[in-house]
Design a protein around this nucleic acid. Structure first.
Length: 518
RNA sequence: GGCCCCGUCGUCUAGUCUGGUCUAGGACACCGGCCUUUCACGCCGAUAACACGGGUUCGAAUCCCGUCGGGGUCACCA
């Protein structure tokens, strides 16, 4: 039975690279008819785990990666929080001690550090001298008499080598003598990650540990722990990490300032921030930026777009296929086709996937989601007025593929909803203050007043007739009308805008625009 | 620095195991053009890569050796 797991720490946000790791685990489990387990690695137990955890859970669930066991899912191996499994780890530590695979160590961190520095000075690899190792109770008592506190430290082998058969990297060799004996239990009895992770993977019967490459060097000591405890080994698969835009460094949520210098990244960020501000959301880089999945959720990206993009970051089906349904992903996902080199996060390509998926998204659902955004921004009342649905549908239809994310409805189409539109100064200068523009507009206003019915077809005829009668170019009047009625130089088709706005609004706005420039 | 991993267009990748069909394919971005009432979409086109050096071979992106480059990791964090 294939059982994979994703084991995030509840830090409050989910990194884009984390989502991809979760995705690979989820896909692999589904591909093989196995189970996907969500475990929370909170050995460092913060108090309010629930609150910090919510975004992580939402991050997975929102992207359609359901877990078979884990928080909120009744299941046989509960609890799924490491903070609640301490007793198990302590048992394991005891067992390690009894078997001679670990020992009580009474060195202070400073003493270890001194040995490390000495080794560095002499340019030889550091290996702890085990000077403060206590293997008998007499030794232990002696150290304790000095007032020392003991931790449990791994007694790693100091000869031979380990060969790991990694499902994506192939055979990887390590020399045991290069591996440090890490602490697995602190003096206060709490246990550390490596022990906890190995014990849990065993208890949860994890068959495949699929995780990012940065864990590759942790693997020898985890294997040592597992073998010492008599556990069967899981299969390992170390996938490359997700790198920064335009470099091979590991993507990190801390280096936002650096990423903002990347033009594409900055563009995506700016677009998202503009939407978030209209929604009244906090936009500090720490919690809101394109490295964090929440960013996309809040701005209104489609989960399918994100998943599809992330899947292709380090995996491919063949030489051409890019767009895939969940089922196609599941049917074809294979660890053998995971690339070995790190892949840079490219926000522009994500954007292209978003564009594609949004175009295919059903109009009705699109309208529903955009209504939510309008309500959240306080532009449309809750519950909405009864004609809101029909109008919104018209707007969304008219805007077509110009709306890339749900939040775009706020910045792109706000002029449909507000009474007092704001005029874009540049557009006004360019299109309304031009020689003769105001006069033409004033004249065209009268034609609009008479156009009947006030719909796209008739409006188009009116404009064409006007252009012909005045012997002008279409551009001379059409842009002026657009700016006067919408306030902007860009937007949906003009006739659609006019019809949706309705005659009274159009005339009033033109009057106001004329006042502005005269 | 030690150990480990990686190296095909700017970016994501196909091709590498099983040498020839690769004068290296696709996608995103960029640039140019078409369409057009703006923008967006769509369409067409262009530029662009086998890190380098040796071997092996009739033939190497693919096999071998070396060099260089990039990255990860070296915690009583996870």
């Amino acid at each position: 039975m294939v059982r994979t797991r994703f084991a995030p720490s509840p830090t409050g946000y989910l990194h884009i690279g984390g989502v991809r790791t979760a995705l690979f685990n989820w896909l692999f489990a589904r591909r093989h008819g196995g189970q996907f387990i969500l475990r929370i690695d909170d050995t460092d137990a913060q108090r309010n785990v629930e609150a910090a955890l919510a975004p992580v859970l939402a991050g997975c669930r929102g992207r359609g990666m359901s877990w078979d066991e884990g928080p909120d899912v009744g299941a046989p191996h509960a609890p799924y929080y490491q903070s609640q499994r301490l007793a198990r780890y302590q048992d394991a530590a005891r067992q390690l001690l009894d078997g001679g695979f670990a020992y009580r160590d009474f060195a202070t961190p400073e003493e270890i550090q001194q040995e490390r520095e000495a080794a560095q000075r002499e340019k030889r690899p550091f290996l702890y001298s085990r000077r403060w190792m206590a293997e008998s109770s007499e030794q232990q008592a002696a150290f304790e008499a000095e007032g020392r506190k003991g931790v449990v430290r791994l007694k790693m082998p100091r000869e031979g080598k380990l060969v790991i058969d990694d499902l994506v990297r192939g055979q990887v060799e390590f020399e045991w003598a290069r591996e440090q004996g890490h602490v697995v239990q602190r003096a206060d009895g709490t246990c550390l990650y490596h022990l906890a992770s190995v014990v849990d993977d065993h208890d949860l019967e994890i068959s495949h540990v699929i995780r990012a490459e940065e864990h590759l060097s942790n693997t020898p000591r985890q294997i040592f722990i597992a073998q010492s405890l008599g556990y069967p080994l899981p299969q390992y698969a170390h996938v490359p990490f997700v790198a920064e835009p335009g470099s091979k460094n590991k993507l990190s949520k801390r280096k936002l300032d650096k990423y903002l210098k990347n033009r594409d990244f900055a563009q995506i960020n700016e677009h998202g921030v503009a939407i978030a501000e209209r929604l009244g959301l906090a936009t500090t880089g720490e919690t809101f930026n394109p490295v964090i999945v929440d960013f996309y959720e809040q701005v209104g990206y489609l989960p399918d777009a994100i998943i599809n993009y992330l899947l292709l970051l380090g995996w491919s089906l063949d030489d051409k296929t890019e767009f895939m349904s969940r089922q196609t992903m599941i049917d074809n996902f294979a660890l053998e086709r995971v690339t070995k080199a790190p892949a840079s996060f490219d926000p522009k390509k994500l954007w292209a996937f978003e564009d594609h998926y949004m175009q295919a998204f059903p109009l009705k659902q699109k309208v529903a989601r955009m209504l939510e955004f309008l309500q959240q921004a306080g532009i449309v009342a809750k519950p909405p007025p009864c004609d809101a649905g029909a109008t919104l549908t018209r707007i969304v239809e008219a805007a077509g593929d110009r709306l890339k994310v749900f939040g775009d409805i706020l910045a792109y189409a706000d002029f449909f909803f507000v009474d007092q539109i704001e005029y874009d100064a540049k557009a006004v200068d360019k299109n309304l203050r031009k020689e003769g523009a105001a006069e033409l507009l004033a004249e065209f206003r009268e034609r609009l007043a008479e156009t009947e019915p006030f719909d796209t077809q008739a409006l188009e005829q009116t404009l064409h007739a006007f252009v012909e009668a005045k012997q002008i170019k279409t551009g001379q009047i059409i842009h002026a009308v657009r700016v006067a009625t919408t306030g902007k130089a860009v937007g949906p088709g003009l006739y659609d805008c006019l019809e949706i706005l309705g005659r009274p609004t159009c005339l009033a706005r033109i009057d106001r625009a004329l006042e502005l420039v005269r």
